[in-house]
Amino acid sequence: MTTTAGRTRAGRAGIAERARETARDDRPGTAGTRGAFFLVMLSAAAAVFLYPFVWLVVASLKPRDRTFSDPFVPWPNPFAPENYANVWDAAPMLAWLFNTVFVGVAAALAVTVSSAFVAFGFAYFRFPGRGVLFGSVLATMMLPGAVTLVPTYLIWNTVGLTGTQVPLWAGNLFGSAFYIFLLRQFFLGIPRYVFEAARVDGASYLDLFRRIALPLGRPALIIAFIFELKASWFDLMKPLIYLQDPALFTLPRGLKAVVDQFYQGGDPKWEIVLAASVITTLPLVVIFFAGQRYFVQGIATTGQKG
């Protein structure tokens, strides 16, 4: 099975290479009127996808009674930047931002290092039971998260860690199937003689992992890190289940609390809700632009997450 997968991959790479060799600009329809037609269509689609962002940011900068007014005017009039001052008073956004960064970095770091460790084990060593064990990795990728929700809660409850942020990231210390798979593929691409040469020079297995696999695996490690950072930043379910104290909330959980408190009722404060939404989203957009290369590469090569 491994060999077939390996050959398919080689075959795909071959196709990709040939496709790249072909000049991309001489395709029919790229230049001239048909090219222009597709540019117009793409621009229209892009406007549809991007305008909700514009609306969100603009509406968050308007006074409350103007939230829904002039929805197609892409600037706030009148301008109400004080919404952002008020949101800090209405909700501890800064603490939530800090919590999100802490939990996200802990989750991403834990899953990256542990998954790389395990992936190296699968990639480098030949040992009895390897096929079956790697099969178990692939099998858990198929396991829907909802199935283990209750027993996982009971575990954290038993060790007395519900109500803390620990359950939000500590499970990641044991690696995650998707990243183990990703990193193993990457480590398999490192020529074996690199490792063998180091072994001859007296390097231990831990050295091979630390000095060769980790540095050479950097692009894949970065992909794993930012995917998990994003996943953690998105997560609502775990904070809903494990956190009661608002001081410990992450941004999504906090934003949910803000919506619950301010969106409806006798005195809705839409501008607070909208500003809090922008604050929740903006850091991720910045992270995306900083790591865009890795996101695109990661999604295109592995097809999942993100």
């Binding site: 793409l42 621009s43 689609a45 892009a46 996808f49 991007l50 909700p52 962002f53 609306w55 969100l56 509406a59 939230t67 829904f68 994003k230 930043w233 998105f234 609502l236 941004l251 999504p252 959980r253 934003l255 949910k256 919506v259 969106y263 839409w270 809700v273 909208l274 939404s277 929740t280 989203t281 991720l284 957009v285 992270i287 995306f288 865009q292 996101f295 695109v296 993100g306």
Partner: peptide, 23 residues
């Protein structure tokens, strides 16, 4: 354009829910 189409996927689902309550 790929960036434009992907950008909404960087919005946390809670914020997506909030945004669409308004939209």
């Amino acid at each position: 354009f790929r960036t434009a189409f992907y950008l909404p996927s960087m919005t946390p689902y809670v914020a997506v829910g909030v945004l669409f309550l308004f939209l």
